[in-house]
Amino acid sequence: MANDANLNTQKKEEEHNKIKGVFSLQTLMKVGTGTTQRKTIQKNYWFAKEVENDMIEVQPLNVNYVPSGPKKLISKDEFLDKFSPEPEFYTYTVYPKMRELNKTIARADRHRKRGETYSAEFEYKNALNIDEENIRANFGLGLTYLERGDKEKANDIFERLVKLDAAFEAEHKHLFNEFGINLRKQKMYDQAVDYYSRALELSPNDENLHYNIARAYFGQNKIDQTLAHLKKALELNPDLEEAKKFIEFLEKKRLIPEGTINTITS
């Protein structure tokens, strides 16, 4: 028990000592041309978080002082060499704005779960006014439109999300899955195929993505593509029962030759 307590204490200390907060990066800029050219120092602010293997994940702050846009990884040595801590700026400006943004999204989520779609839309839009690339807010607003059957507005959100790599990261998996399912439920099969294709570019060996895109292709009545992705799903995970049952369903409907499932699983 004592060893467990010591281990927990050590882990907490390690987490506490990890880099996290707002840092500034100064870059030298040349302004003007010829004899009027002069040098000026530009200061940009970044939100930084230490991750695995002595790497630091950095993300720029937007004009509203919240982390927004693409993240990138740099080594800890490079980070410590180039970035300067801004603890007061983080404590008094950035952290309160991040907290308020998260509270706004949480309110929107509660409205959506209660079926209060117009209140949810209002709060999600408030969040996007602060951070237009916020993944949770974009997914939430898109789901709100899909649940309301507003396909035109949902398509606008789809086009925004499909361009954002961060939308398909593991931390957003549940929202990502829910959005794809709702696209298919609304018979937005073209968008669903594009959506899952984009995800497969980033995670080509995810059997569930292959299964989901197979269902979207089936909605388009593209049986060859449906079967190809079901086969790939089973190649990646031979125990994926949903894929097996889907193939058996295709056999019963005489959309593919009988015995296809036996050929694949033997």
Score class of each variant (00 low, 15 high):
Q186S: 15
R148D: 02
G180C: 12
I213N: 09
L141A: 00
G180L: 12
L200C: 03
A154R: 08
H111A: 14
E169Q: 11
N177R: 13
F139S: 02
K163C: 14
R112E: 00
L183P: 10
D190I: 05
T144G: 03
E116P: 02
Y118N: 11
D131G: 10
F139W: 00
E116V: 03
A170F: 10
G219M: 10
L234F: 06
A199K: 01
N205Y: 08
F218T: 04
A233F: 07
Y124W: 06
Y217T: 05
Q186Y: 03
L164G: 02
G140N: 01
E133T: 14
L202D: 08
H174P: 04
L128A: 07
L141D: 01
R110G: 09
N134H: 13
T117G: 13
D194S: 12
A199F: 06
L143C: 13
F158C: 08
V162I: 15
H111E: 04
N221M: 07
E147H: 09
N126A: 14
A127K: 01
R114L: 15
K185R: 11
A170G: 02
R107S: 15
H174I: 09
E152N: 14
K151C: 04
R107E: 14
N221R: 10
R107K: 15
L230W: 12
D224P: 06
R160D: 11
F179S: 06
G115P: 07
F176P: 00
Y217W: 14
L141G: 00
G140Q: 01
L146I: 11
L200V: 06
A216L: 06
Y145A: 03
G115N: 06
L230D: 13
G149E: 10
L183V: 06
L146V: 09
P96M: 01
R184K: 13
R114M: 15
K103T: 01
F139V: 03
I105R: 03
Y196S: 10
N155P: 05
E169A: 04
E100D: 12
L143T: 09
D190N: 12
D165C: 08
P204L: 05
D131Q: 01
A199H: 04
L164Y: 11
A167F: 06
K125R: 15
A106T: 11
L202N: 02
A137P: 05
A214H: 07
E201N: 15
A192W: 05
K232W: 08
G115M: 12
E201A: 09
I157D: 07
N205R: 11
R148I: 04
H174A: 13
N129C: 10
L128W: 02
L234S: 06
Y92P: 02
R99W: 00
L209S: 06
H172W: 14
S197I: 03
E178Q: 13
A106I: 08
Q220C: 07
M188C: 11
